[in-house]
């Protein structure tokens, strides 16, 4: 418990900054929607853009004049932004003790490394949850004045569950990378590179059909809004894959990190 508390306190500032930034962004996006709302001209405009172009932006399947369609078109960017936050949090969660050279203090206390990681992971999940709720709240508040379809709240709910799963996936990948790599400077870079590469591949898949088999390893493809909108549920295959990645990531960290030499000065 003491570890959870300390971690939450240590990360409070960063959560607030991320929360404010994301809430601001969501609000701006939803104000932008005002000019799209119920305006068929925007759909005609979009229809005029080549399909390939839209595919790269991940916008090919949406009616931007409807609220659900608009939110669908921005959700990929929410996945990306909160994914970055999550993977950075995950990799620094473990690596920062070695980076700040506090490992020699923390890990000579009478607590096992595994329990330290469990505490840190709990704190990180709370951290992700808070950020998710702030984003959700910003979304709900900034759409209050718009006409909403009857399935709006179900759709929003699903989107944010999907968002949380994506956050968890990247958290656990970040943790695993930094628990394997003894070079704490590198693990942050590797983590962000992995995230950016998966994001680029996810736009490539939209345009190049032959690459579509890659979608199973690209978390950004797991909960595409077109599926959410049509089925009003999360795709069970990807749900299982997600859980698998999270279990491997966190489980791997819990097994590997306690066994390796700490990088001390």
């Amino acid at each position: 418990m003491n570890i959870v508390k300390r971690e939450l306190k240590a990360n409070l500032k960063s959560v607030i900054i991320w929360g404010v930034a994301i809430a601001f962004l969501v609000t701006v996006w939803m104000i932008e929607y005002e000019s799209f709302a119920g305006n068929p001209a925007i759909d005609e405009l979009i229809a005029a853009i080549p399909q390939e172009m839209l595919a790269v932006l991940g916008m090919q399947d949406f009616t931007l004049s409807s609220l659900n369609g608009f939110i669908g078109s921005i959700s990929l960017y929410l996945y990306l932004l909160l994914g970055i936050q999550a993977i950075l949090l995950g990799s620094s969660l473990i690596a920062k003790e070695e980076r700040d050279r506090t490992a020699e203090y923390l890990f000579t206390l009478p607590i096992s490394r595994r329990r330290v990681i469990v505490g840190k992971t709990i704190a990180a999940i709370i951290n992700l949850g808070l950020l998710n709720l702030v984003t959700l709240l910003a979304m709900i508040l900034s759409t209050l004045s718009y006409d909403k379809g009857e399935d709006f709240y179900r759709f929003i709910g699903l989107t944010f569950v999907a968002l949380f799963i994506i956050q968890m996936i990247f958290l656990s990948i970040g943790m695993l990378i930094s628990s394997i790599s003894k070079n704490h400077k590198k693990s942050g870079n590797i983590s962000v590179s992995i995230l950016m590469i998966t994001f680029l591949i996810s736009s490539l898949i939209n345009t190049v059909d032959r690459l579509s088999f890659l979608k199973y390893i690209i978390p950004f493809k797991y909960f595409e809004t077109s599926y959410l909108l049509n089925e009003m549920s999360l795709n069970p295959i990807y749900l299982v894959l997600s859980i698998l990645i999270i279990v491997v990531g966190i489980g791997g960290t819990l097994t590997l990190y306690p066994k390796r030499d700490l990088a001390l000065s």
Binding site: R6, A10, D100, R101, T102, Y105, T108, S265
Partner: peptide, 12 residues
Amino acid sequence: IGYLPSEIFYYD
């Protein structure tokens, strides 16, 4: 055990 390392680093 009480341990005093040669170089002290705590949470700043």
